[in-house]
Design a protein around this nucleic acid. Structure first.
Lengths: 243, 243
DNA sequence: CGTGTTTTTGAGCCGTGTCAACGATAGTGG
DNA sequence: CCACTATCGTTGACACGGCTCAAAAACACG
């Protein structure tokens, strides 16, 4: 089975792969695991001995705060390895759950290490993947901090749109089937459910972006990215051009 | 000169070093560079060909938003390499400035690469350093997001205190000479100058923590960490015990 | 001692949160 | 196929946390 395909696509999009490295990645033993919405793949505090590549669906990572609130720190699309960091940072400081029906591919740490020791290029590419992860975190700090609700929300939508497009998840008409509830968006942006709703309404009435029947559609990229103060460079995608 | 010392201490504290690796790190050519407060080491958009280890003083990383606001994404103490990620992510998505008088040690990327290719263990340790950086980002997302002003501020103070202690920067009486202005704290927490001031006042009157004449003093660790919902595990310091 | 920076405080406003209810949508079982 | 139920989205009213404006007090340093 071509389980590796999404991973290869992702690695290709953030740095490129030699034929040899491609074949090497294909030697990774990948155990598929099916997840229903809300299923936990990892809990805060776990010490996994494998990492998971998202094969289909969308996952989220979040911390649970003492008062029960959730802070989402990342959404993860196919091809990404949300817990790659567990290779060298054993204890999970957040949980990893499926947002949609999803399939992940479990890759034992030992095998990842073997592959990386065989190819330093590949090691650097995996490292780079975790560094891009961190670059996204930095933007999210700003989303939750100095950017206001409107700008932060717009920024997140810009980001998701580009990432979805990079893996070919957009429909022919340019819309993206958006699996996130407004509650989940709010937990990512530090906003209440009610306020996220009003913010999305504002973006819709501005003709910037709209979520209609579960499909995110950018109505005016220039306007949306202007509101967001969005610069796609931090995603480090090879084709970072505009929609 | 023992310029490497802070770096060795840092690497030691996050993972440990064999004698061979220690000697290897000591072969890194380190060019010292002195910085005055407010001096930029790197600007957003730069593509550095070396990374800098903080030798003394404190640096900050921040993004400049379109409206001129600043979002601080990190404070960096001696031993840390704030721009290590520039090894594999060329373009800086934020600026790096000195907060205090500071000395950094410039290490060419080529030399870092050479050292890492010689010792895979060391490579993993450097990688781990960037992963801890990312773990801190995740907490800062929560500081700026779901945690309120009081809790977020308390969390940041807890973190700084532990990191300062880990490098022996605390005075005998347990206080830490705090080089950050309230404006800078606000830029890290997404709070206005006025509100950070009021928040610090609240922590002081709670007998949790106080900044007096430029010295941060934790008055009651249990109370402060309770307010913060602080769990030191994410810093991955070998001796993560409480003050 | 003067000048610039940082801290502190007050007053009033606005963005965002909370509470509460209703509407829309989708899946479920009779 | 149609209630039935659960989840999600939408809207209004009101409260509150945090922001802005403005000015004074406390430092820091030459």
């Amino acid at each position: 089975m071509a389980f590796v395909e999404p991973l290869l696509t992702r690695l290709e999009s953030i740095g490129g792969l030699s034929d040899a490295d491609r074949r090497l990645v294909e030697t990774l033993p990948i155990t598929p695991k099916r997840l229903a919405p809300q299923d936990y793949l990892l809990h805060q505090g776990d010490r996994p001995s494998s990492s998971a590549v998202v094969l289909s669906g969308v996952l989220a990572r979040f911390q649970e705060l003492p008062d029960g609130d959730r802070q989402v720190v990342s959404f993860n699309l196919p091809g990404e390895i949300p817990d790659l960091h567990s290779l060298f940072i054993r204890r999970m400081d957040h949980s990893l759950v499926a947002i949609t029906e999803a399939v992940v591919g479990l890759m034992p740490h030992d095998d990842i290490q073997r592959v990386m020791e065989t190819s330093p290029t590949l090691m650097k590419l995996f490292w780079r993947e975790t560094l891009i992860d961190a670059a996204v975190f930095r933007q999210w700090i700003a989303n939750n901090g100095r950017r206001g609700a409107l700008s932060g929300t717009a920024h997140l939508l810009c980001e998701l749109m580009l990432r979805a497009r990079a893996i070919g998840a957009l429909r022919p008409d340019g819309g993206w089937p958006m699996p996130l509830t407004q509650q989940q968006l709010g937990d990512a942006l530090g906003l209440s459910l009610v306020h996220i709703n009003r913010t999305l309404k504002a973006l819709r009435e501005d003709n910037a972006a709209a979520i209609e029947r579960g499909v995110l559609r950018v109505l005016d990229w220039d306007k949306l990215s202007k509101i967001a103060g969005f610069d796609p460079a931090y995603l480090h995608l090879k084709q970072a051009a505009v929609a």
